[in-house]
């Protein structure tokens, strides 16, 4: 079974994330970045499936130079090879453009039996790219999987919803997005780190995908950020030490604010 895992390089959530003042896009250069933590679950799940059978795991990312770190981490975890789509014209792409590029890249790789993605990125957190990708490729999508079983020709997943826990089934080839409930991602081993150095990473430009520069990027985006503004820090609240009356004081605050 061959699997493509889509991984995103994101600014570290622990750092001061911000925007580029010139064009209102996310600052992906001056803020330390890393493989989106939620995509580690996708890599781990793909590795487990291949390890239990056979086949290859290819990791695919779209992003600037630094995004090669995301591929490297996935290769260190055990993925077999990487594809990095990189082109200055991609800067400022929105979800529609990103899904278009992912679809083109996957068609060039060759549509695999399974595409695995994270449930959402940790920066844009839209959680829509996987669905858009499936729509563009005309594949069934099983999203938010918290448990996955791959059989011959089918994939079955558990999805925990608000009202029910469902079992969902689809025929392969299919796309699956996984939650952070599905597994415990491995840390790269020393052996994995050494082995990753020899693994092949292809870099593709828009021309390689047959996409023209005016179809993607900031100017072609379907959406436009018109302004961004740092939110004022919340005004410092009242903090009391419980001296046997903390609960009563809490209730007093709620009464004052008309919650009771």
């Amino acid at each position: 079974m061959n699997i493509v895992v889509c991984v995103k390089y994101v600014p570290d959530a622990q750092a001061e994330r911000t925007f580029n003042a010139s064009d209102s896009t996310t600052d992906r250069v001056n803020v330390d970045g890393l493989l989106s933590e939620l995509d580690e679950y996708a890599v781990e799940e793909a590795l487990k499936i291949v390890e239990a059978g056979e086949g290859e795991v290819t990791v695919l990312t779209i992003g600037p130079d630094e995004a090669s770190d995301a591929i490297k981490k996935a290769l260190q975890m055990g993925a077999d090879k990487g594809v990095h789509v990189i082109d200055d014209a991609i800067h400022g792409s929105d979800a529609l453009a990103t899904s278009l590029l992912l679809a083109k890249a996957i068609e060039k790789i060759g549509v695999p039996d399974l595409i695995v993605t994270g449930m959402s990125s940790t920066d844009g957190i839209m959680g829509v790219v996987p669905t858009m990708l499936a729509e563009r490729l005309g594949l069934p999508a099983v999203t938010f999987a918290s448990e996955l079983t791959v059989g011959s020709g089918t994939v079955s997943a558990r999805r925990d919803g608000d009202v029910a826990s469902q079992t969902i089934e689809a025929a392969l080839p299919a796309l699956v997005s996984v939650t952070d409930q599905i597994n415990e991602p491995r840390y790269p081993s020393f052996k994995g780190i050494m082995a990753a150095k020899k693994k092949a990473v292809e870099t593709w430009t828009l021309a390689d995908l047959g996409v023209s520069a005016d179809e993607v990027g900031l100017d072609a985006a379907w959406t436009k950020v018109t302004s961004f503004e740092a939110r004022p820090p919340r005004a410092k609240g009242t903090i009391v030490k419980d001296e046997g009356d903390g609960g009563a004081k809490l209730a007093g605050f709620l009464a004052e604010r008309k919650f009771i």
């Binding site: 903090i239 030490k241 419980d242 903390g246």
Partner: peptide, 14 residues
């Protein structure tokens, strides 16, 4: 509004 305290004491009183 914050209470620095043990939730097992503060919440029942509240």
């Amino acid at each position: 509004f914050g209470v620095v305290g043990d939730l097992f004491a503060v919440l029942p009183q509240a």
